[in-house]
Design a binder for these strands. Sequence first.
DNA 1: GACGTGTGTGAGTGCACACTCACAAACAAA
DNA 2: TTTGTTTGTGAGTGTGCACTCACACACGTC
Lengths: 180, 180
Amino acid sequence: MRSTAEARRVTVLNTAVSVFARAGFHATPVTAVAASAGISEAYVFRLFSGKLGLFVAAAGACFDRIAAAIEAGAERAGGDSPAEILEAMGDAYAKLIADRDLLLFQVQAQAVTDIPEVAEAVRAGYRRIATFVQDRAGASDAQVQQFFAYGQLCHLIVTAGLDQIPEPWARALTTGIRHP
Amino acid sequence: MRSTAEARRVTVLNTAVSVFARAGFHATPVTAVAASAGISEAYVFRLFSGKLGLFVAAAGACFDRIAAAIEAGAERAGGDSPAEILEAMGDAYAKLIADRDLLLFQVQAQAVTDIPEVAEAVRAGYRRIATFVQDRAGASDAQVQQFFAYGQLCHLIVTAGLDQIPEPWARALTTGIRHP
DNA sequence: GACGTGTGTGAGTGCACACTCACAAACAAA
DNA sequence: TTTGTTTGTGAGTGTGCACTCACACACGTC
């Protein structure tokens, strides 16, 4: 036995997040995930229940990593005020998505929410993050809303590559946003 | 002659926005657009240069409609202050995307920005809207940034169906957002 | 060694879909 | 009426991909 199935699943999920992040659910063949994980396509289908099952599981892994990063970031906050804790969470998130995979996967997942299983996975992910942010930071509804609004703005900045554009309108949208 | 090619192109583009909005670029066969427009698949390929050409043209039509709505909304502003004009623009945008097609198409377009032609179309669309908002409203960079951040938040709310969830975290993200 | 159990794959199968092309029908100009 | 141009389509073609299955190899156990 080279490896246990459970360990394989973990490594496959992490590569799946990266691979799906580039071109999305429908444009990514399972072969691509299998090749990137170094195993055969057939075995991926044995480990997960179809391509959809793989994608949904990858979404779970994606939000797990985001939640863990934000929780760890909160521990490093400079103070106890909601604003300070939110700031620390935002910094942690910005650091995490520097490699773009987790951010792009979220965009891809949101784009296939017409598939009910994906929609539920996305809701579950944001439920976990939003409740944690609100409880841990003790932030107001408006503060939480703002936190997520500017998080979503990052999605636009990265997908459209606005941080590469020197024109004033693009600068307006990107200034102050932590380094994505 | 039933119709001129130019007129056909316009009607096809509007239906294309609606059809692509549901399942996205890769999951939408050209047959679906053709059927919805009431013409044959073959003729769609004659009117546009491939599926990608159709999608990019639809993106142009999508941003045209958004820009027109925001420009019209600005005319109905209650006053001359940047905040009032932005408010009027936001209301106009909220009304426009009540049918969800234009919003969902933007999400789908952002998801396929790995295709350079799509990325350029998205940039062109936001360039047009952002420069207009900034110039017309005379708003600061921060105000423009906030305008777009909460616009992007709408994308999450609609794709994940957060407005249908009675839980407190979902209420926090949706309160005050104009009705999508 | 024989045998079960879990890990892993090569070689298919069937279907959906992007794109083409030969051809038809409506209209205009002579 | 003939000729040309534009609008429009049915019937293909080739390919890529989700999914399957019979089979092989590694390991433990007796």
